[in-house]
Design a protein around this nucleic acid. Structure first.
Lengths: 151, 151
DNA sequence: AATATTTATATCGTGCGCGATGTTTTTAAA
DNA sequence: TTTAAAAACATCGCGCACGATATAAATATT
């Protein structure tokens, strides 16, 4: 078959793409009540681990560029979740810090991972099988991420 | 640790999301010369397998909704890749058919899968490890896809 | 010290994804 | 057969992603 490789079912990337979309969709029931999106949830995860980071560090952590992260942070600031203050030592930087609202949301979000796990367990039967994806995905990410010299 | 599960590194979905973004990025060098995007490439894959399908069938195949697929097809029609003609038996339908340009692009796209494989192999070392993802991703997709009664 | 380069962030434009909603046609029910 | 429900497609609005470009401040070079 000359075009065998061009069949949709032979495309790994399509599976990744679809699995990601569907998994993001599974977050909706838990994120909607908080009024945040999945990328915003990711920003919060980063800030909950370490508050007061420059935009660049957050972007690096999420492996996104500032042209994606900046508008994201602007929307989150408008929503009252965080503040973007000018850096003192380096005035080019914008230091992102959580507001009270952003901080307390951690408590409301605490159970999201286990809720999602339960949800997926119910639909898939096994969770362990999913965890086998992790090392391979990490290797793929590692391989495909250009080692851009961070900020 | 009370918030252990809220750590970014413990999030499978973040890995899926990142791996997908980076893999899509790896397609750019091959799709840019053709003037198409990855979702447009997916539509072509579907039509190359079976020409003249209603919008609904394409959407179902890609597991997307018509509100995503319709504008996608409109852009592709404007680009001269396909035509959207009214269905004869069911006039609600729009039958999507490839143009000469859309058909011949198959020849130009023929080597994309192997180019990408070679590319990833170079950066990851192994390809076999990636293929181990397939059954699990399929199970995840199967589990998360609401069995919406298709068109 | 003056100039060039890099870095940190922002802006703009385009193409998705997708929730919500609308229109027309088909099918099912009363 | 008239009416109700469902199906196929489209439109609208918003929030990403991301390429391209811009601006200002910090760093490196000459």
């Amino acid at each position: 078959m000359e075009y065998e490789q061009l069949k949709l079912n032979n495309q790994l990337c399509f599976r990744l793409y679809t699995a990601t979309r569907l998994t993001l969709g599974a977050y909706h029931p838990y994120l909607d009540p908080l009024g945040i999106t999945y990328p915003q949830y990711l920003v919060l995860l980063v800030l909950w681990e370490q508050d007061k980071q420059p935009v660049c560090d957050i972007a690096k952590r999420l492996m996104l560029d500032t042209n994606t992260v900046t508008p994201l942070l602007q929307r989150m600031e408008k929503a009252g979740l965080l503040l973007r203050t000018k850096g003192k030592t380096d005035t080019r930087q914008r230091i992102v810090s959580l507001t009270e609202k952003g901080l307390t949301m951690r408590e409301q979000a605490k159970h999201i991972p286990e809720c999602l796990s339960a949800n997926i367990l119910e639909k898939m039967g096994s969770l362990e099988e999913l965890t086998t994806l992790v090392p391979t995905l990490d290797k793929l990410i590692e391989g495909l991420s250009e080692r851009r010299i961070g900020c």
